[in-house]
Structure formats: C-alpha cells, structure tokens
Design a protein around this nucleic acid. Structure first.
Length: 271
DNA sequence: AGTGCGGCCTGTCCGC
DNA sequence: TGCGGACAGGCCGCAC
C-alpha cells in the first residue's frame, strides 16, 4: 500500500499542522499493531513540541524535543488531521492530540503498520539502520544499481522491493518503473546491463516524482491527510491491468507470480 | 550471503 | 444468500 509517494504525500499533508505544536496527549485505542505501541510513547511524548516531520524510506519520523515517533503505514494505514471531537472509527487505533484541538489520527484496518518511539537518532534505530539510499537522491544512480545487482539471481522486481538495495519502492512502483525502463520484472537482476540499470534508475525517479505530484495512488485505503484520495491510479501503465491493452502498444498486459506477489508487464514493450 | 517462504490482520471479490 | 478461498499497497524472521 503506502509506498514512498503515498508516505511523502502524507508527510507534506500533515507537516504544516504539526510543526511547532505541542503534543497534549497520546490516545491509544488499540496498541496491537505490528509491534505493540510502546508505553514510553504515552509517557514521554506529551508536553513536547514537534520540531520536524521527515520521511525515510516508507517511515515517517516525527521529531520531538526528547525523541522521535517512527510511523509505518503498513498495507492499509493512513494518517489524517482530525478534529479532536470527531468520533473515532473502528480502525482509528491511535491519536496524537495537539494543543490546538486537532489530532493526528492513525487508521489501519489490517494493523500491519506500526508506531514506535526512539530517544536516540532515528537513523540508528534497528528498523532504519540498514536501509539503502533514497531513490530521489544523488546516491542512487545507474552505477550504484549496477554494482548492487551483480551476481544476484533474484528477479529485478524483487530487488527493487528490497529496502537494503533502495528505499521506499513497493509492488506498484516497482512494476511501473520496470515498464518505463522496458525491462521485464522477471529478469534476473544480475543479468541487467549497465545501460539498463541507468534506464531503470531514471524510470524509478520519474515514476516516483510523478506519483508524488499526483498525491499518490489510492487503490482502496490510502487517503491524504485531508481525507481525499490520490489520483496516480488513473495513470498506471501495468499494475493491476492484466488483460487490458498496453497504453503504449495495445498488446495485452500480462500478470505472473514472482514468489507470492503478482508482477505485471507488457510482453511487447518489455524485454 | 542470498533466496524464498510463512506469518501477521481485515476486507473484498469470485466461484460454487 | 452463504461459504470457502484467493488476493491485497509491507516486511520481519526463519530455514535452507
């Protein structure tokens, strides 16, 4: 679900509402997320001011004076700014109540998401420590991808999903970027040429940048911080389009299973 | 070290 | 109309 563009869209949406505000309380209705919501979040965050709202991979980092809230939206999570008095729904598991009467509300039907608390630098947190470069920064280029894929036998689609190789890419954008780069998702990563790696990096950058501009992809659960859906789903070339016509050449888009997860490609455009 | 799978959850859709 | 099964945007932890 929320991949880099959706998390970035969320970050941009919530940041203006949080920055410089004091957290009045943390309301946990259901602590049973992927990892149990730590008690320290409830005891240590209230009274502190939010100083920065950052993103690393698919994690949101809410930096306060005495620590950082680490939020992951899992498969079905979304964050929105709500009025404190708005009734919480069945899946609204947690609120950060702010001093102006609003709250940051986490909704997550599947509860694959997480809300954690760390006192030290978040980059040192065990979940963030081994994550690879951000795809929209200079550290991620064709030479890097070429080097990291050598002698790897896994499908390139799966290496794009591997956060140790590159941060923030999920199944939608892996498939879309591979289409743009004209590379089949099932190709063994180690068999990609140097120019193909360059094309793929450019395609990843372009796809993610356009998706952020569109406010992300809403297939079902994702919502922006104001509750509105993103609209990149109307621009998808392959993801979820099995049996439909390729927007570029009109061939039928195919789906296949790589491991447990579906991959989509155009048999004419991609090799 | 790299690869591939199971499992965590709920909702939705499809075939029978 | 109901039921079982497959599937869904992520990712850790494990066995090999």
């Amino acid at each position: 679900m929320p991949e880099l563009p959706e998390v970035e869209t969320t970050r941009r949406g919530i940041a203006p509402h949080l920055l410089g505000q004091r957290v009045r309380a943390v309301v946990v209705r259901n602590p049973r997320l992927r990892w149990k919501v730590p008690v320290a979040l409830v005891t240590e965050l209230p009274g502190q001011t939010v100083r920065a709202v950052e993103r690393r991979a698919k994690y949101l980092l809410l930096r306060a004076d005495n620590g950082t809230v680490i939020v992951h939206l899992g498969m079905s999570g979304s964050l929105r700014i709500a009025d404190r008095s708005d009734p919480a729904g069945r899946f609204d598991h947690l609120d950060l109540v702010l001093e102006d009467g609003t709250c940051l509300r986490l909704r997550d039907p599947r509860r694959f998401g997480s809300v954690l608390w760390t006192r030290g630098p978040p980059a040192d947190h065990v979940l963030l420590r081994n994550i690879g470069p951000e795809p929209l920064t200079a550290g991620f280029d064709g030479m890097y991808l070429y080097t990291r894929t050598r002698r790897r036998t896994a499908a390139i689609r799966d290496l794009l999903l591997n956060a140790r190789i590159v941060a923030g890419i999920g199944n939608i954008y892996a498939n879309e970027a591979l289409f743009q780069a004209r590379i089949r998702p099932s190709r063994r990563a180690g068999r990609l040429s140097r120019p193909e790696c360059g094309r793929l990096v450019a395609a990843i950058r372009g796809t993610l940048t356009r998706a952020i501009k569109a406010g992300g992809t809403t297939l079902r659960d994702f919502r922006k911080a104001d509750g509105a859906p993103g609209h990149f789903q109307h621009t998808l070339y392959v993801y979820g389009r099995a049996g439909k016509r390729c927007r570029r050449c009109a061939a039928q888009i195919r789906a296949l299973h790589i491991g447990q997860r579906r991959a989509f490609y155009c048999p004419h455009c991609q090799h």
